[in-house]
Amino acid sequence: MPHPTGAAPLPENRDRDRDRDRTPTALRVAVIIGSTREGRAGGAVGEWFTERARRRTDLELRLVDLAGFRFPERYPERPSPDMTAFCDEVARAEGFVVVTPEYNRSFPASLKQAIDFAYDEWHAKPVAFVSYGSRSAGLFAVEALRSVFTELHTVTVRDGVGFDLLAGLPGEPGRPSEDAEERAVTGMLDQLVWWGLALREGRTVRPYVT
C-alpha cells in the first residue's frame, strides 16, 4: 500500500548524501505536523525546523504531515488504509517531534484524532514539541499534549521550541529571537537523541510492560 503524500521521506538524492555521514546509531524520528487548517503556519514552521534538524548526523527524519492523510470523519469498525499508514509511521519511529499550533489554549482536533489511532506503537519512545501561537508561543498546547503522551507511555523531553507568530513566521527577516530559536532546536534535539537511544537500548534488553 503506498504511503499518502503526508508520510514523505526526505528526497532521495539528499538521503544518499547524508547516509554517508549518518552515524550507525542514528535515531529514526518522525516529525508530525499536526495542523490541517487551510492557510496554516504549520507548514512553514515544520520546514524551518526540519531544515535545521537535517544538519545532524544522529537523526534519520521522516516528515509526517497530517494534511496529507485522508482520515475518516467517524471512527470506522476497521482501520482505513490511511489510519494504518499513520500507525505504521508511528511504529517505525524511535522518537517524535510534534509540530503543533495553539487553538484556544489547546492543540487541534486533527492532531488528537491521529494520536488516538495508535497506542502500543507510541510506548517507551521520546516526544519533543515545536509549538507556535500568538504571545504564548503555543506553550498551552504543549502542556495539554504532555498529559496525552504520558497516558501513552512516552517520555516527553523537557526543552522545546516555541514561536510567537506576532513576531512573524520562522525564517522571516528581522525576527528578534532567531538565534535563541536555533539554540533551542539544538538543546531539544540533544535531549531527544539521549532519551531515544536510552529507550532503544531498554526495549532491546526487555519488552516494555504496560
Rank of each mutant, 00 (worst) to 15 (best):
Ala8Asp: 02
Glu12Lys: 14
Asn13Leu: 06
Arg14Asp: 08
Asp15Ser: 09
Arg16Pro: 00
Arg16Tyr: 02
Arg18His: 14
Asp19Ile: 03
Arg22His: 01
Thr25His: 13
Leu27Tyr: 04
Arg28Pro: 00
Ala30His: 09
Ala30Val: 05
Val31Phe: 07
Val31Pro: 00
Gly34Phe: 02
Ser35Glu: 02
Ser35Arg: 00
Glu38Lys: 14
Glu38Gln: 14
Ala41Leu: 07
Gly42Cys: 03
Gly46Glu: 08
Glu51Trp: 02
Arg52Asn: 02
Arg52Thr: 01
Arg54Ser: 12
Arg56Lys: 01
Arg56Thr: 01
Arg56Glu: 01
Thr57Ile: 09
Leu59Phe: 10
Glu60Cys: 03
Arg62Asn: 02
Leu63Trp: 14
Gly68Ile: 06
Gly68Ser: 01
Gly68His: 06
Phe69Ile: 00
Phe69His: 12
Phe71Asp: 12
Pro72Tyr: 05
Glu73Val: 07
Pro76Val: 08
Ser80Tyr: 05
Ser80Cys: 00
Cys87Ser: 07
Val90Cys: 11
Gly95Ile: 13
Tyr103Gln: 07
Asn104Trp: 12
Arg105Trp: 15
Pro108Glu: 04
Ala109Gly: 12
Gln113Ile: 05
Ala118Tyr: 13
Asp120Cys: 00
Trp122Cys: 04
Trp122Lys: 08
Lys125Leu: 05
Lys125Ile: 04
Lys125Phe: 00
Pro126Tyr: 07
Ala128Met: 04
Val130Leu: 09
Gly133Gln: 08
Ser134Glu: 11
Ser134Asn: 09
Ser136Glu: 08
Gly138Val: 05
Glu143Asp: 09
Arg146Asn: 05
Ser147Gly: 13
Phe149Thr: 07
Glu151Gly: 06
His153Asn: 12
Val155Gln: 06
Arg158Ile: 03
Val161His: 09
Val161Thr: 04
Gly162Asp: 04
Leu169Tyr: 14
Leu169His: 11
Pro170Ser: 10
Gly171Pro: 08
Pro173Gly: 03
Arg175Leu: 14
Pro176Asp: 11
Ser177Val: 09
Glu182Trp: 11
Ala184Asn: 10
Thr186His: 05
Thr186Cys: 01
Leu189Gln: 08
Val193Phe: 11
Gly202Asp: 11
Arg203Asn: 11
Thr204Trp: 11
Arg206Tyr: 02
